[in-house]
Nucleic acid binder design. Sequence first.
DNA 1: TATTGTTATACTCTATAACTATA
DNA 2: TATAGTTATAGAGTATAACAATA
Lengths: 137, 137
Amino acid sequence: MADLIDGLFQLSFALQSALTKIAAAHDLSVIQVRMLGILRDREPGMLELARYLELEKSSLSGLVDRAAQRGLLERIPSAEDRRAATVRMTAKGKKLARIFEDEVRVAVEALVRPLADADQKKLATLIWRVLPPTMPA
Amino acid sequence: MADLIDGLFQLSFALQSALTKIAAAHDLSVIQVRMLGILRDREPGMLELARYLELEKSSLSGLVDRAAQRGLLERIPSAEDRRAATVRMTAKGKKLARIFEDEVRVAVEALVRPLADADQKKLATLIWRVLPPTMPA
DNA sequence: TATTGTTATACTCTATAACTATA
DNA sequence: TATAGTTATAGAGTATAACAATA
């Protein structure tokens, strides 16, 4: 069991480290990358996005500001509720997210290359059985 | 393969999130926790510790300052090289690290509880076959 | 000259509290 | 009053560049 716990965290840190480096190469932080990942197929309000990212709404303001300033996303004022706005990726943001995901895929493929196809499938199955059912892709 | 990549990152973020929350409950950040983990069985110099954590030496100065101010570790001047110092955990730091690790163990045990013992062993084996050989425990 | 470490500076990320505008 | 979001403020964490002390 100690082996499993150590392995899980070392794997997690290795993945985060890889993610951090690839992100930095594009002048992005891990949290910015996570935000772009969420916006890939959603157009959430600020509060909703903050909840996804487990951040306070005030923390999100600056995060969105900086990404918007780079032209990666934009605030869309809500038509019904004039207090509210949704966050939408721009074409530039989508392009960057796509490039980023490709690079991450290559890195992870290299990481799991030591495993035969059947073992990769087995690993994926075991991982998905551990993840809480509410984790969104 | 997309399943595996998604699963790996979701698992990684779930672990980091759990770690962040347990750390925050003890007024610690993830990087402070990692530092304490490394110091559990080492007494490295500043440069060595920075290398373990993949940080610049200047970043480490403040990190060590804050932990030292809380009495979790201390700088030990080197006898041979008067420029250098090693970093050593105090009894207080060791105690906190022990408590923290216990809480993390409980959380991860709960996470992997859906898996039967044999599957947990299988998962550990697969993970260790993926990790680069140089990853220190 | 090279190495170990700190300091100065600037930026991102984060939370808490107070605020604005709208519901 | 309650809610969506921003702003003010403070602090941690990070890097780059310049520095001090020692090798």
